[in-house]
Design a protein around this nucleic acid. Sequence first.
DNA 1: GCAGTTACGCTACGGGTCGTAGCGAAAGCC
DNA 2: GGCTTTCGCTACGACCCGTAGCGTAACTGC
Lengths: 203, 203
Amino acid sequence: MQSRTPASRATGRPRSAAADAAILAATREALVELGWSKLTLGDVATRAGVAKTTLYRRWAGKNELVVDAVAELFDELEIPNRGSLAADIEGVVLQFAAILARPEARSGLMAVIAESTRDDALRERIRTSIVERQKRLVLEGRTRAQARGELPPESDPTTVDLIFDVVAGAVVHRTLVSAEPADERWVRAFTRLLLVGLGGAAG
Amino acid sequence: MQSRTPASRATGRPRSAAADAAILAATREALVELGWSKLTLGDVATRAGVAKTTLYRRWAGKNELVVDAVAELFDELEIPNRGSLAADIEGVVLQFAAILARPEARSGLMAVIAESTRDDALRERIRTSIVERQKRLVLEGRTRAQARGELPPESDPTTVDLIFDVVAGAVVHRTLVSAEPADERWVRAFTRLLLVGLGGAAG
DNA sequence: GCAGTTACGCTACGGGTCGTAGCGAAAGCC
DNA sequence: GGCTTTCGCTACGACCCGTAGCGTAACTGC
């Protein structure tokens, strides 16, 4: 959501928080039934039981609305503490895959990423509300693995960025491009590849 | 493109091959200037110097047109023979990254992939004209590395799928989501991670 | 050459969505 | 009650979609 000027003004009729929730839920519902391209803001407004103008007062357009609607799906992401780096990775990747398997994420996420290639503000919105939240999990997992002694202390901060791109990219590509499920078997093979590299994974 | 019934009929005025090329080039030009969402078929037709109806006679819609226009960008992909698996991987990843760095690929590819999540025919079109061509490179690289003795003979065919998702996914995510260049430094770090795994890459 | 067939350019059209303007009513603060 | 902001509603011009219809161009086979 976007704040009014600095913080919400104390005067006038307040915005309905229920309307926000209804609009975002209606957006996800429309994503499931219609997909990104056939989703219209008028339809979302009708589903949410609000006027179309109300929707436009809160979001600049389809892109921003869908980013917020999809971002809520990632709220549940948490890195499990399963006792080993491999198990932790498998756990978080399975969670990530489960979210991407949902139709409202599949059809919406790639579309807004595509739009963000020509809209810096949109990319920033995606980064802060979706990507950074995921990347934090990678940081936590690394810290925990280092405490266990499974990973050496890391000095290069770009390694985290690299791992994040590899993990998230692989799951997204498997799910959306190859269009095959990132199930337990796949996740195990992927985790092994990540940990021991190509030579080990081929054994 | 789509063939007429089995093979092109021998009667009647033939379709202009020049028009095909002009339309696809105009599509890429429009992708650069306008991006996916603001690209209209009427505009593409005008740029190509053909009538809008001609465009609709050859492509079912925006999705199919952009897939074909973007697919041509991947024609130049070839796996180099640099003498070692690591060097081969770095070479092909750099080529792939160079294509994804082009604006007509960035804005178009993700958009059609997003659309393909709700359109099986479109996904199949993407698979045959873009994805499979990339996957062939992975196969060639593996065969060559096995001949060199760098990789053990592989029995599990799903390993190729896994590697492909990891490589393509990582580059795409780095380029389009993280929005940072997959330059030589990054590619070297990625290749090392792929070959020796997390423990080695962290050293 | 001439008939047959297909592609092409052009124009026009109904249908749908966009994003905004304007209005009166509702809901909160002082 | 007065002030302020939000809300629902209606209406609107602008744009794009995808198709139909027509006359013309290009190529094949007789």
